[in-house]
């Protein structure tokens, strides 16, 4: 399978009055062409920062990509000048935001906002832009597109607005779509419709999707692979099957405890006891130590080595170390 995006050792920090927040601390993952990768994790673990970093939309100041590479189709995005990056945004990589109520400009018509993307990047007439916009409205399932183009965002419902945002993101036919909690702000029936739309669009266009979410129900529905993030690191990654049926990291297990069913959307993560570490001075070792029921002495001191369960399944946890496994086996025999 072709890799379309490869993120390596990504570090992002924010300088604030209180000190430096190490929001993303060495994230590695890749995305294959045409697949959907879900990034899940508690609030504040760095999911949005990671996706903004890919778009190079981290507000600077205070934010900065301090280390790492983001290779998209053989180009390292972290090294590109802003101007080149602008020609990639919206054309090769697009983004969808959480709240469709605020993602659209209230003072411009839907048509203007849909068309400005194509017109920015392609030399086309306004008639061509309009027919492209109508085509997109049709693709995302908005009835009466011709009249709807002339309307303003406040004349649409939340679900319809999210469809428009999706149409806006797709109008230049990007190869990668980053959706940051695209259904969180919608009610459950609308959520299901939007998720279905993602599936249809992927089928029709072959776009690769990074889906950021809190909602394991959403993940179960449309993800191919899942990356679990904790305190600025990806601590476990695997196929949907591997993560749901064979989770290895204690944090992933905690996350999944409440969500055994793949057929129900809308279930939220049940909080695990304790709070994530302070990102001003994150621990040297495993960031989950303070909350982990299996924590060992080494956990606090050294960050675990990444172990591979399979070609696709990787875990950052000392429990995977041979010595820990022997110890556990020994104590099991004793009992």
């Amino acid at each position: 399978m072709d890799t379309i995006l490869e993120v390596k050792n990504l570090h992002v920090t924010f300088s604030t009055y209180g000190g430096t927040i190490k929001a993303v601390r060495g994230v590695d993952f890749h995305l294959n062409k045409g697949e959907t990768l879900a990034i899940v994790g508690e609030s504040g673990c760095g999911k949005s920062v990671t996706s903004n970093a890919i778009m190079r939309l981290i507000p600077d100041p205070p934010g900065k990509i301090t280390n790492g590479t983001i290779v998209f189709k053989d180009k390292d995005l972290t090294a590109l000048p802003e101007k080149t990056m602008r020609s990639i945004r919206g054309v090769d990589i697009s983004m969808i935001f959480q709240d469709p109520m605020t993602a659209l400009n209230p003072t411009l018509t839907i048509g203007t906002q849909l068309m400005e993307g194509v017109r920015q990047h392609h030399r086309i007439t306004s008639d061509q832009a309009k027919s492209k916009a109508l085509e997109m409205m049709h693709l995302v399932g908005i009835p009466n597109p011709t009249e709807r183009l002339k309307q303003y965002p406040h004349q649409f419902s939340g679900g319809m607005r999210q469809r428009i945002v999706i149409a806006m993101a797709l109008i230049c036919e990007p190869e990668l779509l980053i959706a940051d909690e695209p259904t969180t702000a919608l009610d459950v029936t609308i959520q299901a419709q939007i998720l279905e739309l993602f599936d249809e669009i992927q089928e029709a266009t072959g776009v690769s999707i990074i889906l950021i979410t809190h909602d394991l129900g959403v993940v179960a529905k449309i993800a191919d692979r899942i990356a679990v993030m904790y305190a600025g690191k990806i601590i476990e990654v695997g196929t949907k099957r591997e993560i749901f049926y064979d989770p290895q990291h204690p944090y992933t297990k905690g996350l999944l405890k409440s969500v055994p069913r793949l057929d129900v959307t809308g279930e939220k993560l049940v909080p695990i006891d304790g709070t994530p570490p302070d990102l001003f001075s994150p621990p040297k070792g495993c960031p989950f130590t303070a909350r982990c029921p299996f924590a060992m002495e080494v956990c606090d001191k050294v960050y675990p080595v990444t172990t591979e369960q399979s070609d696709t399944h990787k875990v950052d946890c000392w429990l995977q170390d041979e010595r820990a496994k022997q110890l556990l086996a020994a104590s099991a025999i004793k009992q």
Binding site: M55, L57, R86, S87, I88, R89, G90, V91, S94, M95, F97, D99, T102, A103, L104, N105, P106, E116, G117, Q120, H121, V165, M168, A169
Partner: peptide
């Protein structure tokens, strides 16, 4: 958000 969205569209 709509400003962020506009930046994500690659507008100058």
């Amino acid at each position: 958000d709509y400003i962020k969205m506009a930046r994500a569209k690659g507008l100058s």
